[in-house]
């Protein structure tokens, strides 16, 4: 039952992320990614992989061309976060700040592989602004999700 709730929460976060895209255009709020990390840390690598794959599948709707790339990236990140749960404490502020930032940069790094690789692209991809917003947003999202799960 709690597993189904996690999928429902991810779907809800996807809708909020879409709505946020209309309010703050040009600024990405990685709510789905944060949801995947939270549940992966709570429920382990296998659940993280399944949830990440499903979350990536939702984001595929906005992708152009091939399918499965975003699912694979999010699934992989969910799996890794689940493995990390054995080493890190989910409720630690450092985990809530650092892990999402690392995950965001992993998503960016793997997405680079889907584009023509160039130095200017790397420079544009790794934006400090995204890092800062993720770091600020993450503890709040984790607290809210903790109350709902």
């Amino acid at each position: 039952m709690r597993g189904v709730l996690a999928f429902a929460v991810i779907f809800f976060l996807f809708l909020i992320q879409n709505a946020a895209g209309f309010i703050f255009f040009g600024q990405d709020l990685p709510l789905v990614l944060l949801g995947v990390l939270f549940y992966a840390l709570s429920r382990g690598p296998v659940f993280g992989l399944a949830l990440g794959g499903a979350a990536g599948g939702l984001l595929e709707v906005f992708g152009v061309g091939r399918i499965g790339y975003e699912s694979a990236i999010f699934g992989g990140i969910g799996f890794l976060a689940g493995l990390a749960a054995q080493k890190v404490f989910r409720d630690s502020l450092w985990t809530q700040i650092l892990l999402p930032v690392i995950a965001l940069y992993l998503v960016t790094f793997f997405n680079l592989g889907n584009h023509a690789f160039g130095l200017s692209l790397v420079r544009e991809a790794f934006l400090p602004r995204d890092l800062l917003i993720t770091a600020i947003l993450s503890p709040f999202v984790f607290q809210i999700l903790k109350r709902f799960s």
Partner: peptide, 29 residues
Amino acid sequence: SVVIGVASFLFFLTTLPVSQAVSIKGSAA
């Protein structure tokens, strides 16, 4: 086996031809 199953499914998705991928995404959208 769950990990291998999910990973295989995700890999299978990436190998789908673009035309099929577009059709799946169109229906999902």
